[in-house]
């Protein structure tokens, strides 16, 4: 996906319409990340809102030289979710009220929306799992390799390979898409 640089510039100059367009572009993707991390719709919606408020407030600090806008926004969303999940109160509350288990159980049913789809499904199971842990569960490489019970180096290569395959498939998709567009022109 080509980044709309002028849209980002307008967002950076506090253009509300640009903000609305940026929200339309990225809210689903970011919500997908947050909801898969938190597994609670209401909480995730609040965190998403919080994320976009930060995007609005801090848009001027985004530097396109350092990477894509989505990556920048993703890091904000991930940090919001991790900060919430790692807050002692939220853990205590979960334990005391048993919310955590409830959430886990609740999620099991409508889990379909949380299931990863698209090109990632073409990956081998351990590649899928590795990506899911770091990208959608918010684990660090160190946490994730322990979770998967593989050495860190191995885990790193899982990630690397998975992303390489994903990239190839996306390039294919893009090429296909371009061919289709050319055909229907």
């Amino acid at each position: 996906m080509v980044q709309d640089q002028s849209l980002i510039l307008r967002l950076q100059s506090q253009d509300e319409n640009a903000f609305s367009a940026v929200y339309d572009n990225y809210s689903g993707a970011l919500y997908g990340v947050i909801l898969r991390m938190c597994k609670d719709e209401e909480l995730s919606q609040n965190l998403l809102q919080d994320t976009f408020m930060t995007i609005w407030d801090k848009a001027h600090t985004y530097d396109s030289e350092k990477g894509r806008f989505y990556t920048w926004a993703y890091r904000i969303a991930k940090n919001k979710a991790l900060n919430y999940l790692r807050k002692p109160e939220s853990l205590i509350q979960n334990e005391d009220l048993g919310v955590y288990e409830n959430v886990a159980e609740e999620i099991k049913e409508p889990i379909d929306i949380l299931k990863l789809t698209g090109s990632i499904k073409n990956l081998e199971a351990h590649h899928q799992e590795a990506i899911k842990l770091v990208y959608y569960n918010g684990l660090t490489h160190r946490e994730a390799h322990e979770e998967m019970n593989v050495p860190l180096g191995t885990f790193k290569s899982y990630i690397k390979q998975a992303l390489k395959i994903l990239h190839k498939s996306y390039v294919k998709v893009i090429v296909l898409w371009i061919i289709l567009v050319e055909l229907f022109k």
């Binding site: 996906m1 689903g28 993707a29 970011l30 919500y31 997908g32 990340v33 909801l35 898969r36 894509r68 989505y70 990556t71 993703y74 929306i113 949380l114 990863l116 789809t117 698209g118 090109s119 990632i120 990506i131 990208y135 959608y136 994903l166 996306y170 998709v173």
Partner: peptide, 9 residues
């Protein structure tokens, strides 16, 4: 980014 967009909710 593509992964995220594919898995958007």
């Amino acid at each position: 980014e593509e992964l995220a967009l594919e898995n958007a909710i």
